Computed example of a mutant assay.
Amino acid sequence: MEYYCNNRNQFRANELKISIVFATHNGSYTIDRILASYKSLVCPPNFSWEIIVVDNNSTDNTWEILESFKKELPIKLLKEPKAGKNSALNKALHEPLGDIIIFTDDDVLPHENWLVVYAKLFEEQPEFDLFGGRIIPYWEAAPPNGLLEAIPVHVAFALTSESEKTGPIKAGKIYGPNMAVRKKVFTQGLRFNEMIGPSGKNYIMGSETDFLQRAEQKGHKAYFSLSSTVQHIIRPWQYEKKWLQNRAFKFGRAIVHDQKRHKNLAEHALVFGYPRWGLSKLIQLYLQVCLACLRNDSFKKYQKNWQYNMNKGFLTEYKKMGNALEDE
């Protein structure tokens, strides 16, 4: 028999446990909708659950909204004063967690069978310790013409690729808004890297990817399920030029760290600390952006702006890591 989780929200001695964990910083715009959606979750048989939310220095009324749900949901509230999403997630890992820990974000709406699917994966796929699910968009407003065709949407808005299928997967293809980890991964000492991830306006993307790939390197295998579905709320201001430029720039920075992690960050001929090929490419892309603007070509403007700022981010981070590369 299926029943909604808010009707049974206490851990029982003979049941397995699910902990849902996410961090929030000034999340008042979406947090009310997110927690309200949790009241419609269907509980899997023989599992209990809890929600752990870590407030990461919010200055709006996020905390008050969180507290308003304490009587309706099995929610535990924590505060982490150190700025950064990964610092907040690591704070939650000090708590006594469930057998499986589901990580998500404060702007993600789960399907009502979300917990049921993860519980089933937990029991039916014992050789896997890392799990991921589908992330589809919840557009608050229709995207501008040409945008979705011009940029890598899965990167820009943290959505899963339409090519993904249920089954084993490389851990780096699992995205943070919808991922689950067996508790034993954390008991073995793995933590989120607090040097990267959301923190302020200009940060290095890929914090969950970094964690998952490090776990994979230690022998933990990953599994993806299309049945585990969430919707990622995409706000209209995320279509704006400034936001997209910043997102592409952060992605370019993340590429450097990803290549370094996989030991395939090549050394290049440098000009003032930047790869020479990259500077040439940057100039070329800038001219293409200007041409697209003159022609008022929406597709090319989105495409070339993204590529220009991604390349700029890559070059900036490559130069920052120059001394470290020389040391190696």
Rank of each mutant, 00 (worst) to 15 (best):
I102V: 05
P177D: 03
F192P: 00
L78W: 07
K120E: 15
K79L: 14
V181G: 02
E208D: 15
G133H: 02
Y3R: 13
N305K: 09
R253K: 08
A156Y: 00
E2T: 08
Q238I: 02
K304G: 03
I283Y: 08
Q188F: 06
N145H: 09
H25Q: 15
T62L: 09
K82M: 03
G322I: 02
D297P: 01
A269V: 12
A215Q: 08
Y203G: 07
F314L: 01
D99R: 00
T187P: 11
H111E: 15
Q125E: 15
T30W: 14
P126D: 13
N202V: 14
N311P: 02
K71D: 15
Y274C: 04
K218A: 07
V230M: 02
Q245L: 02
I18A: 06
V289E: 03
F128G: 00
R12M: 12
Y286K: 00
L147F: 12
L287Q: 09
K71Q: 14
A119Y: 07
A119F: 02
F22T: 01
E267I: 02
G146I: 08
V256N: 03
N305A: 11
P81I: 10
W237Q: 10
F224S: 06
K173D: 13
E194R: 04
Y286T: 04
I151N: 05
V289Q: 02
I233C: 02
N264C: 10
L159F: 13
F47N: 03
Y308E: 11
A171Y: 01
D327Y: 03
L73P: 01
C293E: 07
P137R: 12
L16T: 03
K312H: 14
D297T: 07
I204V: 15
G133M: 06
I233K: 01
K71R: 13
L190Q: 00
T59S: 07
F103A: 03
Y175M: 11
K320E: 05
K170I: 00
I174E: 01
V108P: 05
S58H: 13
N46C: 04
L66C: 14
F299T: 08
K218C: 04
Y308N: 08
D258G: 09
D297S: 13
F47Q: 08
P144C: 15
P45R: 01
Y302K: 00
K260P: 00
Q217F: 04
S40E: 14
G98L: 05
H220S: 10
S161Q: 09
W243H: 10
S228W: 11
K170P: 00
L212I: 00
I233A: 03
T59G: 01
K301I: 11
A88Q: 04
I65E: 07
R191N: 09
